[in-house]
């Protein structure tokens, strides 16, 4: 067991206090959109209603009125209604009729996850902070409020955060946001307090279909590989893992997903990158501009004499 899948600060900075890296595997193929995770998260973490006293807001976009992750939403169940005309190619070289037949096969195997009658299907996915291996929010935080825990997760220390807001546009997933009446930034802690007591996070415990699975990250990855194989063997070839490898732009997610469409169909970026990966180039360009500024002003002072 162990300290596999290391990050910059974990396990190295914890010595003997380091614990196995924890994470989520969210298998959206069994998500039923019940939103128990959203409720459990709000209850346990005492997260206020969205936008304080603002009245209820209805998007008219399927059953998704939560809209996105933010300071007051640490789990967000995305509902995506996809309408397909019957003759539209679904991109896998299949007509929809063929796809429907395949899906019928999947159903007979006990794998049906959504309605597909009348050319419509629902995608449901419980989104959450990805707890990136290379977390841009943590890297850019100027106070050290965002830190890497002994479980390898990324947490905001609310007694340190001064609300500078840098992490908000730094996150490639748009996870973090400022709480308006409070001024600080809030996000999923992977239930840091529960982890310290060897309890699983509230959302995972509340999930009735085991769509949200919690555990040691290396074990979760193995489990996800098996699940992907099972689904593709059953003919559900849209299935894919998102964030399950170290090679992506954020070095792998601590909370990764099994999806049934491209990430952008769930409002997720297909190639998220930790912006600080390019920081060397940014600093070099800035240094060059600083030198140019001094050189230019020197020329001005020399040229503007008399």
């Amino acid at each position: 067991m162990g300290y596999s899948l290391p990050t910059t600060a974990w396990p190295s900075s914890y010595g003997e206090h380091a614990r196995a890296r924890k994470g989520f595997f969210t298998d959206t193929s069994v998500c039923i959109g019940c939103k128990a995770c959203e409720v459990a998260c709000k209850e346990w973490n005492d997260v206020p209603a969205r936008n304080g006293a603002q009245p209820a807001y209805f998007t008219g976009e399927s059953y998704d009125n939560t809209i996105d992750l933010g300071a007051d939403t640490w789990r967000h169940v995305a509902f995506v209604e996809q309408r397909k005309a019957l003759d539209v190619d679904d991109g896998m070289g299949m007509s929809l009729a063929e796809a429907a037949a395949l899906e019928g096969m999947a159903r007979s195997e006990g794998l049906a996850t959504y309605q597909d009658g009348e050319g419509m299907r629902w995608l449901m996915a419980s989104d959450v902070c990805k707890h990136c291996t290379h977390a841009a929010c943590l890297e850019v935080c100027p106070t050290g409020s965002l830190f890497r825990t002994e479980f390898g997760t990324v947490v905001v220390q609310e007694d340190i955060c001064n609300g500078c807001g840098y992490c908000v546009p730094a996150c490639p997933f748009g996870v973090l946001d400022q709480r308006q009446d409070d001024g600080r930034v809030w996000k999923c802690t992977l239930c840091y307090d529960r982890l310290k007591d060897d309890k699983e996070p509230a959302c995972a415990q509340a999930c009735p279909t085991n769509s949200i699975q919690y555990g040691d990250l290396d074990e979760l990855r193995e489990r996800a590989d098996e699940r992907l194989q099972q689904l593709t063997d059953a003919g559900l070839e849209q299935a894919r893992l998102y964030g399950a490898d170290d090679q992506d732009g954020v070095g792998g997610f601590g909370a990764f997903f099994l999806l049934l469409d491209e990430p952008e169909a769930y409002h997720l970026p297909p190639d998220p990158v930790d912006t600080t990966r390019d920081l060397g180039g940014i600093y070099r360009a800035t240094a060059a501009a600083a030198v140019a500024l001094v050189a230019g002003l020197t020329a001005a002072v020399l040229g503007g004499r008399r």
Partner: peptide, 27 residues
């Protein structure tokens, strides 16, 4: 240039394509 964050096969699996599905636009 990159594989992105998506993987469509298990390490011992067969299916492999990282191409975008045109369905994203179509649907």
């Amino acid at each position: 240039d990159t594989r992105g964050a998506v993987r469509r096969t298990s390490p011992n699996g067969r299916v492999d394509t990282d191409k975008a599905s045109p369905a994203i636009v179509a649907h």
